[in-house]
């Protein structure tokens, strides 16, 4: 068990170190988030709609699109110089590779999602609500479920001719539970509603995460096998 965890840790550390050195994906996702918020501001007529009212939905859509940018490139760098072949040939079980990749993607996207929320607060004068910790949990569950399915489907789409263009087609239909539960909870929390109102949403998100991680861990080996 501890050996297994060590293997996952090795993958996570390798990916995060790579990201720390190149800063490619975090910078791309972060810039995307800030620029989207700027464009969103001018896509809303403030005399008709208050940005706070649709802020939660916009936050989640930005997470989805920004996350797509990030997870789409999960296997890019490694497949370019054939390094992923080496990772696959190492004695690490395939599900540990998947979990490692998912976790490193999760760390990146979670940081970006917090940035997105902060940017939206700043730009649109939105209130954090009364329970920021719960909001943090909702974002964590949402992004974890997203990256789990995203990593699995990124492996699928990077093996096809269409590449990343295929990713949203595969990913968006199955993301619906995350958007419904995540954006709904965020909306309520930002409006300062009590935590008891979002317990159902958190359960739904947890079920989604469980499904996504388990499905990914089991199915990943069929995607990367030669």
């Amino acid at each position: 068990m501890s050996a297994y965890l060590g293997q996952i840790y090795a993958i996570v550390w390798k990916d995060l170190l790579l990201e720390l050195r190149t800063r490619e994906r975090v910078v791309a996702m972060g810039a995307f988030a800030v620029l989207s918020a700027v464009l969103f501001n001018y896509s809303i007529d403030r005399t008709a709609v208050r940005p706070q009212d649709i802020g939660a939905g916009l936050i989640w859509m930005t997470i989805v699109f920004g996350g797509l940018l990030g997870v789409g490139r999960t296997f890019h760098l490694e497949s370019e110089d054939g390094a992923f072949r080496g990772v696959l040939m190492s004695p690490v079980p395939k599900d540990a590779i998947f979990l490692g990749k998912t976790l490193s993607n999760f760390v990146l996207l979670y940081v970006v999602s917090l940035l997105i929320v902060a940017v939206f607060m700043l730009f649109f004068g939105m209130e954090i609500g009364t329970s920021p910790a719960v909001l943090g949990l909702v974002l964590a569950l949402g992004t974890l479920g997203f990256v789990a399915l995203g990593t699995l489907f990124a492996a699928v789409s990077s093996g096809t001719r269409m590449g990343e263009t295929l990713l949203p087609i595969l990913l968006f239909p199955v993301l619906l539970p995350m958007i419904v539960a995540g954006a709904g909870a965020t909306e309520r929390l930002l409006a300062g509603r009590p935590v008891s109102e979002v317990v159902g949403n958190i359960r739904m998100l947890a079920a989604f995460v469980l499904m996504a991680v388990a499905a990914g861990a089991v199915l990943f080996r069929f995607v990367v096998e030669d």
Binding site: L152, F153, G159, V223
Partner: peptide, 9 residues
């Protein structure tokens, strides 16, 4: 294999 994975998810 890819298609099967999509169907199962």
């Amino acid at each position: 294999r890819f298609a099967a994975v999509v169907a199962i998810v």
